[in-house]
């Protein structure tokens, strides 16, 4: 059965997050934004059980998140962090890491993965130390994509990159969302970026959801003083 609701948060508490109640639908591209310390990254890690709520429940496709195998869930709900955090070795070593854990690596996949993040195929044998910051972040994205995730959690993946590289990464993400139907859940500080990539926005402050809804509406017509202040 196809569940329209991808994630449902039911009274979820996890310091510094207070009581969170919201749902994310399939195909929503959700932008999480708000001031530092609002709990954005903490929230992001709850989606693939890198941490668990202190109270409340999270449902994925209608079933309690706790009922899934953790490793399978993490493959399906991938994460790209602010820093690339590549493993020592070559680009190829990094790309095959996830699939190899479950004996699912197919070497023919490697070039397609690099193409997806707009890197040339001859990068496969390069040591990750030789790559620029932008290239490392692309490899990090490709490494997560190697697991074929249906949801991609992104924790400010472009905050350390220049404008040009940021735009290129955004194109890749847009392509994934549109062509492959990957749902993006992304923490970002940049409202412009949120507008470009998101369809839905969640504005957090002090561990609480202050406003949420259609992103364009949210940003064109902020109802709370907090969001108005954040936008200026």
């Amino acid at each position: 059965m196809e569940h329209n609701e991808l994630f449902t948060f039911d009274n979820v508490k996890k310091s510094p997050l207070h009581s969170l109640n919201f749902s994310i639908k399939r195909g929503d591209n959700v932008m999480l934004f708000g001031p530092s310390g609002a709990g954005k990254s903490t929230l992001l890690h709850l989606f693939n059980r890198l941490s668990d709520p202190d109270k409340g429940s999270i449902y994925y496709l209608g079933k309690d998140l706790q009922s899934y195998s953790i490793t399978e869930l993490r493959k399906e709900v991938g994460l790209v962090m602010q820093a690339p955090n590549l493993f020592p070795g070559t680009v190829l070593d990094n790309l095959k890491y996830g699939p190899s854990l479950h004996g699912e690596w197919n070497s023919e996949k490697a070039e397609a993965l690099l193409e997806a993040v707009q890197l040339p195929a001859d990068y496969l044998d390069r040591s990750v130390d030789q790559l620029s910051g932008g290239e490392q972040q692309r490899v990090s994205l490709a490494r997560t994509l190697a697991n074929n995730p249906s949801v991609l959690l992104l924790d400010e993946p472009t905050s350390a990159l220049d404008q040009h590289t940021t735009e290129e990464i955004e194109q890749v993400l847009e392509g994934l969302a549109i062509e492959q139907g990957v749902t993006l859940i992304m923490v970002t500080h940049h409202l412009d970026q949120a507008k470009r990539l998101g369809s839905r926005g969640i504005f957090l402050s002090d561990g609480e959801i202050i406003e949420e809804g259609n992103l364009a509406d949210l940003l064109s017509n902020p109802k709370t003083e907090e969001l108005q202040a954040f936008m200026t």
Partner: peptide
């Protein structure tokens, strides 16, 4: 910590 989080998020068990 970052690399370990990356490995776990890719589906690695603690030992891996």
């Amino acid at each position: 910590e970052g690399r370990l989080t990356a490995a776990l998020s890719l589906g690695a068990e603690p030992k891996q």
